[in-house]
Amino acid sequence: MKDSTAQSQKAHTTTSFYCHSDPLETGASWYLVDQAKHPEVLRLLFEHDPVPVYDLPYIHSQYREQAYDGPLIIQPCTRQSEEWLHSWLTDGKALAMHGLQLTPEEIRKHLVSLNTVRAPYGDSLFRYADPATFGSLGASLSPHQCLRVLGPLTAIHGHYGGAHWSLVKNEAEPIADGLAELCSQPLVLTKENLAAVERYRQSLLAKSVAKSNGLDGGVVSSWFQQLITLGALNEQALAEGAGLLIGQGFTRALSEGELAAVRKIRQEANWSDTLEALATLAHSQEGT
């Protein structure tokens, strides 16, 4: 990329991602919906707008056969469709996109360029139409990554995890210098980006478990970290371990002695044996 240092400095001054509680504005130029999560959206679109303006980015890529399970771009043409789409935006079902005098072709071309992302373990499909993607990833994006995601857009807004989020360019005019070249390159996600997503998702799960069981959120977060050291590899394992501890009456983090006892009791270092060891530990504590 020409003058990448200058471009990166420009990105620092013009892009930002933040979560907020302010109402999401109406009047978006375009909306974006993930049909994999909401397969009914195209039918609902025709119910709200008899002559809708929409596009399917996957049709214009190697994912043509998956077009009706991929992202759907919608330009609201009636008040009814705008109100419906805005309600989906605030419910975390759609994204709002803003741009200055962008054509449907320009919007589509940019989104097609985001169909795949370059990650540490190879290229993969990028679920950019799902509000959860940027809701969990956004805070970890560098200004340069933010600029690549926005491309010719001036803002993307969504809702995830109980909060509204916004990815915006802070200047009134889009960055022109080097933008076309930047957008010709794939979006690159780092190990740090992926780790941040994992931490964010775990924090949401911890809050949900704590709220559902009347526990302190810090206790559940501590359990999660302890369960990870015991071999929990995914959210399902964390939920299983936390559920077992809750069922046995734990309301505090495990002590170092209890963690050592679990490691000693389990026969193998697999998760099922660890759960059995936790159950035994909980039972022995309950009886003291």
Rank of each mutant, 00 (worst) to 15 (best):
R79K: 09
F134M: 14
I156C: 10
S124P: 00
N234E: 10
F46D: 09
P50I: 08
S113N: 03
A237S: 12
A176N: 11
P52S: 06
A94V: 04
L233Y: 01
L147A: 13
Y200P: 06
I246N: 01
G162Y: 09
L24H: 04
Y31K: 13
E106D: 11
T274E: 12
Q9M: 12
W88Q: 15
E276H: 04
A261M: 06
K169A: 05
A239G: 09
H38N: 12
P152M: 03
W30D: 06
Y121I: 08
R252Q: 15
T274C: 14
R263Y: 04
A282S: 15
R148P: 04
T26W: 07
G218F: 09
G178Y: 13
E235D: 07
P23F: 08
K264D: 13
L141N: 10
A36D: 14
G217D: 09
K93G: 04
K109C: 12
L32H: 05
H48V: 02
I156D: 10
L233N: 03
L24A: 08
V188P: 01
L56S: 01
L147S: 09
R266M: 12
A206C: 11
N115K: 02
A67W: 11
L281D: 02
R266P: 15
N234K: 07
A155S: 14
P131S: 05
D123Y: 02
S184Q: 13
G162C: 09
G249T: 07
M1H: 06
W88L: 14
P39Y: 07
L189H: 01
S136C: 10
W223Q: 03
T78E: 12
E240W: 04
G287V: 12
T251A: 11
L182P: 04
